[in-house]
Design a protein around this nucleic acid. Structure first.
Length: 825
RNA sequence: GCCGAAGUGGCGGAAUGGUAGACGCGCCGGUCUCAAAAACCGGUGGGAGAAUAUCCCGUGUCGGUUCGAGUCCGACCUUCGGCACCA
């Protein structure tokens, strides 16, 4: 038992206030969103949660500030759609089914129920009539509908792809289920197997996905990550001759961005999965090669690509001819080459590529410099030289700069038909097949006569069978369910077998924003005209962990719908903001094992929703995250207490006319500066400084009350505007205090206050007097001080003069209302 | 490893290239109280100094640009996020 936390008590019953207003708002439907409201539309979404069971403080950290921002937009006069839903398909439900014998549907929907209740305790503006739960047939039927549309467009196709395989469980594993290269269930070393699986052709959109021009405010880091993820490279696809071997293929195609180094090729490397490996391997090398390939298939891609790890590979006993210099070079298989990138084969140029250099050193392959550094003395280089230089040992291209060589060789290669300029992407097509139960069944049927057939639209949805069996080995419950598998071929009516794979859950999240617009529509995934009015999403918020996959998939999805004429927009999300991660009070990531998890229900039960909302926003910049603190929340509670006592004061006790005009003017200035600050900061998600400014206002008003230095009208004005600024961040107490001070229901239908620049201006400033950039004196003067007057202070400051010390003045820098800097010496 | 981000008091953090440390936590002192808590008032980066005089040092490290750098540039160190089947 730890020492009890000293808890500051609230002076009002926050829990009761929460309940009172949540019920009233619900009853009055003040957050119901109407499609035909005349105000301008503002669609602001936060990423929907996975229904893991309990609302974590991390969910509050994502939801509370985004709600405050959506509320701010409402107060600015927008018709705001700020919906919520549940990302309800996925692996954890299936794990629960296996370990606890509970059906994924039961488990998921019980979690959804609980999380709905917890989400309501936030006091957010969610319109619950628009909730989307994507594991329900009325949602996932449209996943199937979209799948068929994409299939008809040629954007969905089937191909072999490796899955992680547990040879003991005889089942496919998720990456998450692999611990140190072993199956988490039975600790058997994993391997990989090729399965026929479904893909979406996201690579068709690679170039368009690199165009971020229409995205208004996305964090630069997310764009950089997407750019790098797509990884566009321009180069040359060039063939190496293997016509000496008696096989169908006449050449090995490689992709290189450095065709200028082609005379430096001293070996070729094939990915272990490359189809030519088995065809070209000589009999005396076969055993070694096969052993190597098996071992490579167990390794993770991260390990394979690691530049730190020692390069490995084996010679396959075959050679290929470099057509540019007629040299025969040995062919290796090595796991640092991936079949998913380029052609799955690379030309080894050890002199000018780090990985090839390491590989050549290890296997004693020749290293031939063909790009000469400018200061090169001809000796062997100690490491790969990847910079620019002059072509050497390069036949007809000798002496060119390598840029010229690159151009000349590419041209010649194309002219001779040995290859062609090509663009390659690191981005791969989106593999959507999952060998699982708890996902959207892929609506395809296999018929021995007719091949692959889509399920007709009229037969959708293909429902998940309720009587599925969840075996601890993790076999796909759909594959072993005969009544699900056996069906009729939609084309010939003969016997057919259903596809038993389900879809990646990123399918659900690729278009859920469209469903929010018309969630009950049954004539299609969304009603086009209404959805067209709401889309694109004006503001999206969520964790940066979705920087590349979800956000890229969704962008692809919207573009493909546009190209099918289903939607007239290019991008789903116009603006994006990524919040950071909330940590435990020990500054570590929250986890049950660390025991640093904060349960929002407990805290909300003690101090109410508003104190929790405010504290989460006050911790620090929203995009940086930060640690929870049981002590820190006391500061927010004290502030709300002080605000409450201000609200309680009877303004009638103050004079009607200002006795101290200067003091009143100061209070007005503070008020209007606060409004300006809050308006600008809320606009840019700077909640921490919004709250700091409101705290300063409360501090000022407390002082003003103690001094009785304001008149009653100014006081009332300050309280009214303070409550309006409080409304988006602390909606319950703002409503309660609004009512208590005799103002009409509801504060949440009031506009955000505006400021008057003239009232915000003026006052005293501290003018800083510097000598050589160092502060030597300060004078308090009225703002708007002239340069001449400012310099007068310099001349008359004994501190400044003593530092000038008679030295010649070389320059005087004047920054209005800030400082004077005298440069001497 | 690759890609991305962040380093400021005892702690969370603030700071259009212009007073470093707003606001808050914690701590110290005071008021109130039999006492404590709460509340309220005051103080609180480090060093020298009797000092609320004055001076010096200080935003991860080293270097640069500038009249002036937490902020811009370069290199390095440390920590965190993502890496395609967790979502």
């Amino acid at each position: 038992m730890t020492t009890a936390q000293r808890q500051v008590e609230l002076r009002f019953d926050a829990v009761k206030i929460d309940r009172k207003w949540q019920e009233r708002w619900e009853r009055d439907g003040i957050y119901r969103v109407e499609d035909d409201d005349p105000r301008p539309k503002w669609f602001e979404m936060t990423m929907y949660p996975y229904p893991s069971g309990d609302l974590h403080i991390g969910h509050w950290y994502a939801m509370a500030p985004s709600d405050a921002h959506a509320r701010f937009r409402r107060m600015q006069g927008y018709n705001v759609l700020h919906p919520i839903g549940f990302d309800a398909f996925g692996l954890p439900a299936e794990n629960a089914a296996i370990s606890r014998g509970i059906h994924p549907y039961e488990w998921t929907m019980a979690n959804v129920d609980n999380m709905r209740r917890q989400l309501r305790s936030l006091g957010a503006v969610y319109d619950w009539d628009r909730e989307v739960v994507c594991c329900l047939p009325e949602y996932y039927r449209w996943n199937q509908w979209f799948f068929i549309k994409l299939y008809e467009q040629g954007l969905a196709y089937r191909a072999k792809a490796p899955v992680v395989w547990c040879p003991s469980c005889q089942t496919v594993l998720a990456n998450e289920q692999v611990l140190n290269g072993e199956c988490e269930r039975c600790e058997t070393p994993i391997t990989r197997r090729d399965f026929e699986q479904w893909f979406f052709r996201i690579t068709d959109y690679a170039d368009e996905l690199l165009d971020f021009d229409t995205l208004e405010e996305w964090p630069e880091k997310i764009l950089t990550m997407q750019r790098n993820w797509i990884g566009r490279s321009e180069g040359v696809d060039i063939g190496f001759d293997i016509s000496d071997y008696n096989i169908e293929e006449r050449e090995i195609r490689t992709f290189t961005t450095r065709i200028d180094t082609i005379f430096g090729v001293t070996f070729l490397v094939l990915a272990p999965e490359h189809p030519l490996v088995s065809k070209l391997t000589s009999e005396n090398r076969r055993a070694d090669v096969e052993a190597y390939v098996d071992q490579a298939r167990a390794a993770s891609e991260i390990d394979r690509l690691s530049a730190e790890r020692e390069k490995t590979g084996v010679f396959i006993g075959a050679y290929a001819r470099n057509r540019l210099n007629n040299e025969k070079v040995p062919i290796y298989v090595a796991d640092y080459v991936l079949t998913t990138y380029g052609t799955g084969a690379v030309m080894g140029v050890p002199a000018h590529d780090h990985r090839d250099y390491d590989f050549a050193r290890k296997y004693r392959l020749p290293i031939r410099t063909v790009i000469a550094p400018i200061t090169w003395d001809g000796s062997e280089l100690g490491e790969a030289f990847i910079g620019d230089g002059f072509m050497t040992n390069s036949g007809a291209y000798e002496g060119m700069t390598n840029e010229e060589g690159m151009e000349a060789i590419a041209k010649d290669v194309e002219r001779r038909g040995w290859g062609h300029r090509a663009v390659t992407y690191r981005l791969r097509d989106w593999l959507i097949s999952r060998q699982r139960y708890w996902g959207t069944p892929i609506p395809m049927v296999y018929c021995d006569e007719c091949g692959v057939q889509p399920v007709p639209e009229a037969d959708l949805p293909v429902l998940l069978p309720e009587d599925a069996e969840f075996r601890p080995t993790g076999e796909s419950p759909l594959a072993i369910n005969d009544t699900f598998v056996n069906t009729e071929c939609p084309n010939c009516g003969g016997p057919g077998r259903r596809e038993t794979d389900t879809m990646d859950t990123f399918m659900d999240s690729s278009w859920y924003m469209l469903r929010y617009c018309t969630p009950q529509y049954s004539g299609g995934p969304y009603e086009p005209s209404v959805t067209g009015d709401w889309m694109p999403v004006q503001q999206y918020t969520g964790g940066a962990e979705h920087a590349v996959m979800h956000l890229l998939y969704s962008r692809f999805f919207i573009k493909s719908l546009r190209d099918m004429g289903m939607l007239n927009i290019d991008e789903p999300f116009l603006r994006l903001f990524n919040q950071g991660v909330i940590l435990g009070s020990d500054h570590e990531k929250m986890s049950k094992s660390r025991g640093n998890v904060v349960n929002p229900d407990d805290v909300v039960g003690q101090v109410g929703a508003d104190a929790v909302r405010c504290f989460l926003m006050f911790i620090g910049p929203w995009d940086q995250g930060g640690p929870w603190s049981d002590e820190g929340i006391n500061g927010v509670v004290r502030w709300l207490n002080r605000a409450w006592s201000l609200v309680e004061h009877d303004a009638a006790q103050l004079d009607d006319s200002p006795s101290e005009p200067t003091a009143v003017r100061d209070t007005q200035r503070v008020l209007h500066q606060t409004i300006r600050k809050c308006y600008e900061d809320l606009d840019r998600f700077k909640f921490n400084t919004t709250i700091a400014a409101l705290m300063e206002l409360v501090n000022h008003l407390s002082q003003a009350w103690n001094d009785q230095s304001v008149d009653s009208a100014t006081w009332r004005d300050c309280i009214e505007k303070f409550l309006l600024m409080l409304a988006p961040i602390a909606p319950h107490v703002a409503e309660e205090w609004w009512e208590r001070t005799g103002r009409g229901y509801s504060i949440h239908q009031q506009p955000f206050p505006t400021w008057d620049e003239e009232l915000a201006a003026g006052g005293m400033i501290t003018l800083v007097l510097q000598v050589n950039g160092r502060v030597r004196d300060r004078v308090v003067v009225a703002s708007g001080v002239t340069e001449e007057d400012a310099k007068w202070y310099v001349d008359n400051s004994s501190r400044v003069q003593s530092h000038i010390d008679g030295k010649p003045v070389r320059n005087v820098v004047y920054v209005p209302d800030r400082l004077v800097n005298v440069v001497v010496g």
